[in-house]
Design a protein around this nucleic acid. Structure first.
Lengths: 139, 139
DNA sequence: TATACGATCTGTAGCAACTACAGATACAAG
DNA sequence: CTTGTATCTGTAGTTGCTACAGATCGTATA
């Protein structure tokens, strides 16, 4: 009688703790339609079931992997509709992978430029700083 | 008489074209105090001089290198104040470089995960997609 | 000189993806 | 039944812009 019956479901705080998401973020996901509207307790508190919990795990994991909200929306749509094939999911994943690789390439260039700039600096008390000069470059 | 006299300065459109910045962005930089308020024509249009143009080049270049507005504010402050040494600028640059390197490392991990996920997918019409399974991971 | 047309003007609202309140309830434990 | 924590709604802030609307400026041409 006093035990936590599973049928009660999970409070928003519980799924927040379980997934590492922040409560306000979960409500935000609901507002933008990424999380479905859960049941409520008689008092009006959100009550999630396994499905909701899983969906949040899916969203968090996808976000961690850098998928945008819109991409996640599309992925969830595919999961929902039985028609969509694994091939389409694969396509999207690869597209995202490419984007990540492009970002890495861009950041590497940037890293090189910054490292070069830093290496040219004597770090002394000189007022003429080669880093500053480099930042004015192009003018 | 009909020639473009340099003393007239540059319009916002001209410095936008020169630096590649967008006009609205320049006004935004002014609003947040990154660009200084320029002179105005009798009619009220902005008129920039070399100093303004150079400052915008500096800002754009720094942004391209991934410095945040606040970091640029600090860098510009150092340029302004004669007291600040090159060493401090170096320090900030290296700190930023570290941040970039950390981001690269994080993205590389992510890249690996995505590549692994994609490689496990047969790309067939199978409804059970290993990518989707992987996204549900943690639940 | 008149006028047409593009460039600028101010001010505000929107974007992603959250985060951070305020002020009011709900709920669980003692 | 009280206390204290958890949630509730709604709104505003964050970063770095971008995109309007509706008015005015500036200039090239007839």
């Amino acid at each position: 009688m006093a035990g936590i019956t599973k049928t009660r479901g999970y409070s928003i705080g519980q799924i927040a703790a379980a997934t590492g998401a922040n409560i306000e973020t979960i409500r935000y996901y609901e507002r933008i339609g990424l999380m479905l509207k859960p049941d409520r307790t008689p008092g009006g508190n959100r009550q999630y079931d396994e499905t909701g919990l899983k969906r949040l795990f899916f969203i968090r994991r996808s976000r961690d992997l850098g998928f945008s909200i819109d991409e996640i929306r599309a992925l969830l749509g595919m999961v929902e509709s039985e028609e969509t094939s694994c091939a389409v999911v694969h396509e999207r994943t690869v597209a995202h992978l490419r984007a990540v690789q492009n970002k890495i390439a861009a950041l590497k260039k940037l890293e090189k430029t910054l490292a070069d700039m830093a290496s040219h600096c004597s770090r002394g008390d000189v007022p003429d700083c080669p880093i500053i000069e480099a930042l004015y470059e192009g003018g």
